[in-house]
Structures are given as C-alpha cells and as structure tokens.
Design a protein around this nucleic acid. Structure first.
Lengths: 108, 108
DNA sequence: TCGTGTCGTTAGTTGATACTTACGTTAGCA
DNA sequence: TGCTAACGTAAGTATCAACTAACGACACGA
C-alpha cells in the first residue's frame, strides 16, 4: 500500500487520475491539460502504473491510460478500518455523555 | 485533503496512527515504540495534529494523543469515488464480455 | 527508406522533508 | 525556590523526488 499512497500524495497525480477516471486518454492528451512538460507527465504515469492505479494500453504509437481500481483496494481497507474505529469511538463517547446526563437510568 | 494524504504518505506516521487507534497514548510512550529520537516523533505528531488525524489532550506535563476520524472524511470520499467508478467500469466490461460470448441473445 | 509524430528514458538541478543535536517551556514535587 | 520529568521548538544536515533539457525508441505514411 506504500506505493499507492505515495503516488496519491502528489496533487498532480490525483488530477491525472481525475482525467482518466471515466475515459481513456493518450499520454499527450493528458499532458495537454497541464503546464508542465510532457516528460514530467510521463514520469507521473509511470508511477501511477507501477502502483496499479492506471492501466496502459498501446494503440499504434500512442499509449492510452485509464484508471485501474486494483491498486485502490489496500488503501480503501486502510481508510475504512480507521473510519470504522473512529465511528465506534464517537458512538462510545456519545453514550458516555448520555449516561452522564442521566446517571440513574439504566436502559433507554 | 492534501494535508491528510501527505501525512499518511509517511510510513512512520501510519504506524503512529495504528498505535493510537483504539487507546490514548502519551508522546513519550509513542516514541518508545520506535528507534528514532523523541523530537522526531514529536514532529510527526504535529503533522498528524495539523491534518486533524489525531487529537491532543493535556494531562499535567504529559500530552495524550488519539486518532481523530475528522481528517479522514475527505480522503474516504476520494477513495470511495474512485472505487465506485472502478467497480462500475469492471461491471461494464464484464457485461460487454458476456455479450460478446453470445451475440445473438438480447436479454439474460 | 526517410521523415514525422508519439512517447519513454537519462542526467542534472532544485525544493521539500525526515532526522539529529541543542535548547526552551511547563508541570509537579522536595 | 530549586530540581526533575515530559514535551515542544529551532537550526542544521542529508536524502528523496519533481522538474527540465537532451536523447533514444517505436509506429506509420510518402
């Protein structure tokens, strides 16, 4: 999961993912959306590909990229785990607060 | 969401989060789990606190830390969005594959 | 086969950051 | 009021990565 989260930590790579989320785009088309040079985008695409966050498909001399959900699985599990424990904690605190408000009552 | 994901990109900070996920720990207790110096952990805790990923509570001279689910909300939405679109894409492709297997049939 | 278009790769530079050492701050106790 | 314990902060260093410029590789058409 380390590769995935490090790949997503860069804002530009998240922007690239937004671009290829629901449509397939060539490397040059992706680069046209940014003000950095094309090689910079190419390096970002390599990072995303190595992290299994995008897939690469060749079409002649072009290379088409698209989001790949595979790499997101580990990160999703990580986030969901902490989210669930956070919710459980909030629930416990809320119940403790409610119990403090009316200490004599047991149920309801 | 930028601060949160950059905070989580560091492996040591994720380890710290694991430690304070279900129990409250003092800064010194957290630092005892690692081989780096205590100030290094203190700096990590500052980053996590600024990203609303942990809460700080003072108890005399000690400072107790614990996971705060607040900062996870944005990241969770981001991951869930891509996860959902990825699932939708896989579903579409599976249906296309099924349609290719039996091109004459319309339904079922 | 010779250009042209589409990309990836390498080398080098620069800015960000994780770390250590040294110091400052606050709380509690004799 | 001193002393100690538990932290945070500041300054300096070293490593990492995002970027540019230059070059190489591959596909396609005249």
């Amino acid at each position: 999961m380390d590769a995935q989260i490090k790949a997503l930590a860069e804002p530009r790579r998240r922007q690239i993912l937004e671009l290829v989320r629901d449509r397939e785009l060539a490397a040059g088309e992706i680069a046209a959306h940014f003000e950095v040079t094309r090689p910079a985008i190419s390096q970002h695409l390599t990072v995303l590909k190595d992290a299994s966050l995008v897939t690469e498909r060749r079409d002649g001399a072009r290379r088409l990229y698209r989001v790949d959900p595979t790499g997101l699985l580990g990160l999703k599990r990580f986030v969901d785990t902490f989210w669930a424990s956070g919710l459980a904690r909030l629930k416990t605190e809320a119940e403790a607060e409610a119990a403090k408000a009316r200490p004599k009552v047991k149920g309801r």
